[in-house]
Design a protein around this nucleic acid. Structure first.
Length: 189
DNA sequence: GTTTAGATCAACT
DNA sequence: GTTGATCTAAACG
């Protein structure tokens, strides 16, 4: 190794962490994707806009964006000025199951937090959480992995991106039922 | 289990 | 006007 951006390490470090959302809902993170700011054509931070400006701020804050009518949650992982972030793609709901189900509807457990939009919805994360510091309450909090190390981490191409679709910067807990199936962007070459 | 198509909203050029 | 880090349902194997 050696030519892998630091954001990939940060992404792997987030696997197995527990994110605490609103109203007692918590999820163990099982799938993430790394976005390396200005060095990554697929990143929103590749072109600096008012929207992505938050990613150039301090680390361990939330970057929430809305697209296609859904919310997606990211954690800034790089120091100020770098613009790197990790997208939370999927998680296993470990607390507040009833609340999560009320928000997502009557679906199987493994589907409650499968996919970025679904995970954010289950946790109750919205634009209002943009910029939240996840290391301190109140609001959304991310708790580092407890005593893991036994989980097998797999890597592969990212889902749904058109540019740089071949970069293996998607990481997930191997064998976990909450991880979504790979899906290529319709227009990716 | 997989693949395909369509919906749908905000932000960017 | 076009794009996009999506989702769901329907069709298929």
């Amino acid at each position: 190794m050696g030519d892998e951006p630091a954001v990939c390490e940060a992404a792997r470090a987030l696997l197995g962490a527990v994110i605490v959302g609103h109203d007692g809902v918590a999820a163990r993170i099982t799938e993430v994707e790394a976005y390396d700011g200005p060095n990554d054509p697929a990143s929103h931070a590749f072109t600096r806009t008012p929207r992505s400006e938050i990613m150039y701020g301090p680390a361990m804050r939330l970057y929430v964006y809305r697209m296609h009518g859904h919310h997606c949650a990211n954690v800034i992982t790089s120091p100020e000025g770098q613009g790197s972030a990790v997208l939370l793609r999927a998680g296993e709901i470990v607390d507040g199951l009833d609340v999560a189900r009320a928000r997502r509807g009557d679906v199987p457990d493994h589907r409650l937090g499968r996919g970025p939009g679904n995970l954010a919805k289950a946790l109750g994360i919205t634009i209002a959480d943009l910029g939240t510091d996840v290391t301190t309450p109140p609001g959304v909090v991310v708790r580092p992995p407890t005593a893991s190390g036994s989980q097998v981490i797999a890597a592969g191409p990212r889902v749904g991106v058109r540019l740089a679709a071949d970069r293996p910067w998607r990481f997930w807990v191997d064998g976990d039922p909450t991880v979504s199936a790979y899906r290529r962007h319709p227009g990716a070459s």
